[in-house]
């Protein structure tokens, strides 16, 4: 299971790296849109943390977005 997931990830990362080569790099002075807070991957960290806590308590899956954050009994 672990090996298969690592394999899948490696393939995806390789594809991503290759596709990145085909994109024109964005220069720092062209980052007007990317610099906006709303364009961040997690523009509202509290919303994300509260959601993560809720679903961690109500579902059997966790993880993916980052590491750290703390534990919970969540019965």
């Amino acid at each position: 299971m672990l090996l298969r997931s690592i394999y899948k990830t490696s393939v995806l990362l390789a594809l991503l790296a290759l596709s990145a080569c085909s994109f024109q790099p964005v220069q720092p002075w062209e980052r007007d849109i990317l610099a906006q807070k709303k364009m961040q991957l997690e523009p509202y960290p509290l919303d994300a943390a509260l959601d993560e806590h809720t679903y961690f308590s109500k579902e059997a899956s966790r993880g993916g977005a980052g590491v750290g954050g703390g534990g919970c009994g969540c019965n």
């Binding site: 997931s5 990830t9 991503l16 994109f23 964005v26 007007d32 364009m39 993880g63 993916g64 590491v67």
Partner: peptide, 22 residues
């Protein structure tokens, strides 16, 4: 938990991220 990820600017209006978490 261990995490490996890559974040890529795909253009002026696109940002993507791919993470693997064990």
């Amino acid at each position: 938990d261990l995490l490996l990820g890559v974040t890529q600017v795909m253009g002026r209006k696109d940002l993507i991220q791919l993470n693997f978490n064990y």
